[in-house]
Every structure is written in structure tokens, then in C-alpha cells.
């Protein structure tokens, strides 16, 4: 798991990659929280473009990140979600809590 992040106009984008499961979850959660605590963004975008697999551990990560952004009175967006993670997020009804963006089809 690798995390690249970009900050622009108080908007923090975190690029997630690899497989998100319980084994990787704690580290991912801590990495995201650490970036939010440092940059205090108004909007956090989790970019799932590089995620090759995700199970329900990813749902806990999203909810945890949502709570962190709510504490800052900021918002959370999820972007570039491939079909498999999208199906898992939808099974949990995440679209009712957070704005979801599907994977951009390759141009």
C-alpha cells in the first residue's frame, strides 16, 4: 500500500493503491488521519483509482475518514472507484453518506 497526496486550495487528495483488507486497514487509516491532521483540509478526496481489491475493511476506513472530516466541518469525496470496490461500498449504502465518483473510463 502506498499513499501519495496532493494539496491544492485546502483540498487534500489522497491516492490509494493496492489491496485494502483488514491486514492493510490500520496502516491505511493511520496514514489518512495523519494527513488530515497535518493539512486540515476543507475537502478530502480519497482516490481509489489504484485500488485492485477492497473488502469491508475499506468501509470502516471511509467511515473513519468521514468522521475526521466532519470534526473539521469539512467534506469527504470518493473518486475514481473501480467496479469491485464500488460494489462493496454500495452494499454498505455508503452513497447515502458520501459523494461517490465512479472510475473515469479511459480516454
Amino acid at each position: 500500500m502506498q499513499y501519495t497526496s496532493l494539496l491544492q486550495d485546502k483540498r487534500l487528495t489522497i491516492l490509494l493503491s493496492g489491496e485494502i483488507d483488514h491486514h492493510a486497514a490500520r496502516e491505511t487509516m493511520e496514514a489518512i488521519t495523519a494527513k488530515i491532521d497535518v493539512y486540515l483540509p476543507r475537502r478530502c478526496v480519497l482516490d481509489f483509482g489504484g485500488v485492485s481489491f477492497m473488502d469491508s475493511s475499506g468501509i470502516a476506513i471511509v467511515i473513519h475518514t468521514l468522521r475526521a472530516m466532519e470534526e473539521l466541518e469539512g467534506e469527504l469525496w470518493l473518486a475514481n472507484i473501480p467496479p469491485q470496490p464500488m460494489k462493496v461500498l454500495r452494499a454498505a449504502g455508503i452513497e447515502k453518506l458520501v459523494r461517490l465518483g465512479a472510475e473515469r473510463s479511459p480516454a
Binding site: H22, A25, R26, M29, D55, S56, S57, I59, A60, I63, H64, K87, V88, A91, A92
Partner: peptide
């Protein structure tokens, strides 16, 4: 706790 979502069985059943 906070590290789990409680959605595991729901996902197994629906997938």
C-alpha cells in the same frame, strides 16, 4: 470496534 464495519455477513450473503 472502529476498525470493523459490521458489514461482512451482509456482503457474503448478497455477493
Amino acid at each position: 470496534g472502529a476498525e470493523r464495519s459490521g458489514m461482512g455477513f451482509t456482503i457474503m450473503e448478497s455477493f
